[in-house]
Design a protein around this nucleic acid. Structure first.
Lengths: 148, 148
DNA sequence: TTAAGTGCAAATATTTTGCTGTCAC
DNA sequence: GTGACAGCAAAATATTTGCACTTAA
């Protein structure tokens, strides 16, 4: 017999609880959508998916929850070169920053991690005496297939 | 006696003409605003300033011109961590990419260039076989003054 | 001349907010 | 019990588009 949903919190839900954030059915639905997403989702996609878990979730609750997660530094907000409209895309913040490369022709998003990126951030922190909280590197160009 | 405006084209105007883009009073006004801006401007600010040069400039013409400049790769579009709303900021594309650091406390924008950034892009191009057209690195954090 | 560009108004898209009722703790 | 959160509707903000008129080349 499966455990009730409230007893299998994902990592995001756990982190929020640790910070004393009140957990609701709606937030649980939204967090699980973000947690299990295999691609970058925008607010409307998150809304639609969250409603499949909890019918009652409202668009404004999605935005309020996204803002909450941003403030807590638990998600990253991306533009992905606005390949699909003017809105933003969201993803769980990973321990190590990664770079997003968007193909301007086929729309494919490639992710990339690099030690050089880490060094660059170190350089900025020391040379500019700037304390980095969030770093976002987005690239537009042509992928392996489309550059030919 | 000063030359008429049409005879002192800025660099942007020159680049557009070279590409066979038709030049109008309105575009000249918008281009000169972008060209001479000392800080990053959003669409509304560009509109307001362009109207000081040519009263008739319409908001939609500003957006159409910004899209044109983006397509030609002559301007960069920035979020600047959305410190002042959900819109975008624009600036002339410089020969060398620069990084934007936005202070989450005082809002100050610091620009930074780095050889390491150039190396990182080289690495992406070779390791991912990705042809970079536009690169945008934006940082949020605390500046020298505010980090104290 | 004429294809491209413009203003205007309206549509669309995205995000926020005020309010009142509800629920997690 | 009560302060934080929810839905709902409306507002606010940001950007695009259709159309008839104008203009650069």
């Amino acid at each position: 017999m499966p455990l009730p949903k409230t007893e299998i919190p994902g990592r995001l839900q756990q982190l929020m609880s640790e910070r004393g954030v009140r957990m609701t059915e709606q937030r649980r639905a939204i967090l699980s959508v973000i947690e299990t997403a295999k691609k970058h989702l925008d607010a409307s996609q998150i809304l639609r998916r969250a409603q499949r878990v909890d019918e009652s979730v409202d668009r404004s609750t999605v935005y309020r929850t996204l803002n909450l997660l941003k403030r807590h530094g638990l998600i990253d907000e991306l533009d992905l070169m606005h390949l699909g409209g003017e809105g933003h895309y969201y993803e769980r913040k990973m321990s190590r920053d990664h770079i997003h490369m968007a193909c301007l022709r086929c729309g494919k998003i490639t992710e990339f991690e690099s030690e050089l990126f880490e060094s660059l951030k170190d350089q900025m922190e020391s040379e500019c005496r700037f304390k980095i909280v969030v770093a976002r590197l987005e690239i537009g160009g042509y992928c392996t297939v489309c550059r030919k």
